[in-house]
Simulated assay, not measured.
Amino acid sequence: MKRSQRGVWVAAGLGLLGAWACATGGAPADGPGVEEKSMASAARASVDVFSGREPPTWMLSGEEARALREAVDALPEGTRPLPDVGLGYRGFTVTWADGARATVYRDVVEFVSDGRAQLREDTARAVEERLLLGSRPHLDPELFTVVASQVQAAQP
């Protein structure tokens, strides 16, 4: 094939690829486009365990997000703030599609919604335990073991 014909075929292929990207929204099936659409009906969770690195993050299904929000809403008001724990495990964070956010560490939950922060008390640590169990399929097995040991280290 002559060099000029090859260039035509490459240009045509790139044109088709561009047309496909425009028609499909330009994002691959597992790319950010799908994740952003999922946020409309779910929530994003993360575990704060690394220093200087992004925390491991995963999506919660709509049902998981709803049940977790109900669990946080049902907690009684608290007065103790989240402790400053330094390095290592520092809790879980959940951000819902409406912008509400819960930071969960041990028996304290800081819930922020509509710019208003509320402290909640979770003496049974049920929210933290729910997040820990839900993180298992999303974390490397060794990391899950480390996080689980840190969560359970302060169990009464």
Rank of each mutant, 00 (worst) to 15 (best):
K2E: 15
K2W: 11
K2F: 11
G7E: 13
G7D: 12
G7M: 12
W9V: 08
V10P: 05
A11W: 05
A12L: 09
G13K: 10
L17H: 05
G18I: 04
G18M: 00
W20H: 12
A21M: 10
G26C: 14
A29W: 06
A29I: 02
A29C: 03
G33D: 11
V34E: 15
V34G: 00
E35D: 10
S38G: 10
M39F: 08
M39G: 07
A40E: 15
A42T: 14
A45H: 08
D48Q: 11
S51G: 06
S51M: 09
G52Q: 06
R53P: 02
E54T: 01
E54S: 09
P56K: 10
M59W: 00
M59R: 09
S61L: 05
G62E: 10
E63A: 10
A65N: 03
A67L: 07
L68Q: 03
V72W: 09
V72S: 12
D73N: 15
P76M: 14
P76A: 15
E77R: 11
R80Q: 09
P81F: 00
L82S: 00
D84V: 02
V85M: 06
G88Y: 11
Y89F: 13
T93V: 10
V94H: 08
W96T: 14
A97F: 02
D98V: 03
G99D: 06
R101I: 07
T103P: 08
V104C: 00
Y105L: 11
V108G: 10
V108F: 08
V109M: 08
V109D: 09
F111S: 01
F111A: 02
V112S: 03
S113V: 07
D114L: 04
Q118P: 02
T123V: 07
E129W: 06
R130V: 01
L131N: 06
R136H: 09
R136N: 08
P137R: 10
P137S: 12
L143K: 08
F144T: 13
T145W: 04
V146C: 00
V146I: 06
Q150M: 04
A153Y: 05
A153R: 11
A154P: 03
A154D: 06
P156F: 05
P156A: 02
